[in-house]
Amino acid sequence: MSRKAYITLGDRITAATDLVSQSSWWGQIQTWVEVLLTRLGLRGQGLVVAIPYLWLLLFFLIPFAFVLKISLAEAVIARPPYTALIEWTEDAFIDIKLNIANYLFLLQDDLYWKAYLNSVKVALISTAVCLFIGYPMAYSMARANPAWRNVLLMLVILPFWTSFLLRVYAWIGILKNNGVINNILLAFGIIDEPIVMMQTNFAVYVGIVYSYLPFMILPLYANLERLDNTLLEAAADLGCRPIKAFFSITLPLSIPGIIAGSLLVFIPAVGEFVIPALLGGPDTLMIGRVLWDEFFANRDWPVASAVAIAILLLLIIPIMVFQRFQAKEAEAGTA
């Protein structure tokens, strides 16, 4: 933009600004808001940062301190069902009781280990399958002509907006013994008796891949869409075959997208509860479900908290890597 254009544009904006703010209700509201904020002694930038900051501090960060605290308490039958860590004794001593029994319990009982390792395994395999299905989709979408691109993008986003719970529920009707797949296979005489798919690990994989696929496609698409086409053209001009160009140009350049998409699938999948609860069987052990059962069925808040801490220890590094990527992407304005 030339300097002159810049200034004229600025003039127009101020003129428009004044017109609107002098005459309309919009200006009134603005003035009220400003007066209100000044009265409260809060002004400008400090306020803009402070409000969301305090909210997230109080309702997102500080709660983790309570999880850690309760994980060191003992379960009792009371309301709330745990003991206090710090107590005033009669002779004015502060009595601090830290109970690590919950953690020892997790270490000793196989159930927790199995659930923990199985969750990581399920999440890793699901992430790989999502990548395997999602990459070609994202790639073809990014290569489609622009008019189609938006339609395809909308089609990927649409299921994401409809209820997650109901989409998982849909699979029950498809996978169960007298469900859609078995009925079709039986009708064509391909099988003689229904294949048991519900309440198996297979169903859990299907559910997770299905639910998280859009999270894999979207960052991959965002990445592949802004891939510089001239690189591929140059490679082709120099006699590079498309397959080779893909592996030596497209794939390496899309690694940030692959990492972002994989983390978006892997991290929540480790702690997934709804999918194993609805599609998995009693032997599908996943750590999110264990936490849920400790909390709701056994009412053992301290053990549930210890499980939460164990999950966090596992996820803290992937979460930090994800944040790095997200911050970079956001600054580039492409998130």
């Binding site: 900051y53 997102f60 709660p63 309570f66 978006l264 929540p268 939460a308 999950i311």
Partner: peptide
Amino acid sequence: MVTAPLVMPEVITGLSLLLL
């Protein structure tokens, strides 16, 4: 604090808020 809630497993967010 803005990016972590996007991926945090829901069981953990739920439990931590309840304890708070």
